[in-house]
């Protein structure tokens, strides 16, 4: 299956999961869909039948509220049965509304509170370096969570320890919980900031599969330096009425909007 098709299938899973579970965070799951698809399909060295394989690449999802797309990708990859997705956000279900490890193969860390993933990723990367392991560490962050000071502690740490086995990706969809990022706490100039902190930085279109793939394949961008990918994305990407709106951080679909969203995603088959 072509990557674009897979990404759209995962988006449809997300739409269904959030609809059935009446859960929030549609917009952020859709903005990350292309990055997550390519990570699992083309980049991450993981073994679904052996999820704790010691040499696996680690993917740490710091934006734990983007859980639905992660679960959809894990199910697609074969970490657990696709049927589990129907239990997302349900009482006594298998899958929680934030990325949660409890008996879910493929999840590295339980997250949900923001600003936790990058320090953790630094620790995993440092241990890998000291053990001379080949595994790489990828951390997915939201733009809103860059408000958290803990990230900037980690942003100081990683270059200090030359963690070139670490790649941070920010899903820069420009909208946080209540408002646009630039109206809340402007991150710009983000690239210049990260460069000034001694990261090697690339800016990409986070929905352009060729760019995502090429960029992720070329990490580390520079030996001895951690890599940062600023992925410009559109919140709610793929469903016209959700795109670039604050509302769809929290809103749920009714039957009519569900049908419309699924129809839009099904018509995108190239």
């Amino acid at each position: 299956m072509k990557l674009q098709l897979i990404a759209n299938e995962l988006r449809k899973d997300v739409i269904w999961m959030c609809h059935r579970g009446k859960s929030a965070h549609l917009g952020t799951n859709l903005s990350a869909a292309d990055i997550v698809t390519i990570l699992y399909k083309k980049i991450l060295r993981v073994k679904p039948k052996s999820p704790n394989w010691p040499d696996r690449d680690r993917f740490i999802v710091s934006k734990g509220h983007g859980a639905a797309i992660i679960y959809a990708a894990l199910a697609h990859k074969g970490f657990f049965p696709k049927g589990w997705l129907k239990t997302y956000y349900k009482n006594n279900g298998k899958l929680a509304g934030h990325v949660t490890k409890l008996d879910v193969p493929g999840v590295e860390f339980s997250t949900g509170a923001l600003g936790h993933g990058l320090p953790i990723a630094c620790g995993v990367a440092l241990a890998g370096k000291r053990d001379k392991k080949k595994y790489r560490v990828f951390a997915l962050l939201s733009d809103g969570e860059l408000d958290e000071g803990s990230n900037w502690e980690a942003i100081l740490f990683a270059p200090q320890h030359k963690l070139d086995n670490l790649t941070a990706i920010v899903d820069y969809n420009k909208i946080q919980s209540l408002d646009f990022v630039k109206k809340t706490l402007n991150l710009e100039p983000l690239k210049a900031k990260l460069k000034a902190f001694n990261w090697e930085v690339r800016e990409i279109d986070g929905h352009n599969h060729n760019q995502i793939l090429k960029t992720l394949k070329s990490v580390p961008f520079k030996k001895g330096k951690p890599s940062f990918i600023i992925a410009h994305t559109i919140k709610g990407k793929g469903v016209s009425f959700m795109e670039n709106t604050v509302k769809w951080h929290y809103a749920n679909t009714d039957e009519v909007l569900l049908a419309q969203a699924l129809k839009e995603l099904s018509s995108k088959k190239k």
Binding site: H116, L118, P119, C122
Partner: peptide, 9 residues
Amino acid sequence: GIAAGIAST
């Protein structure tokens, strides 16, 4: 966070 990350290995 780093302590947790290292411990996870």
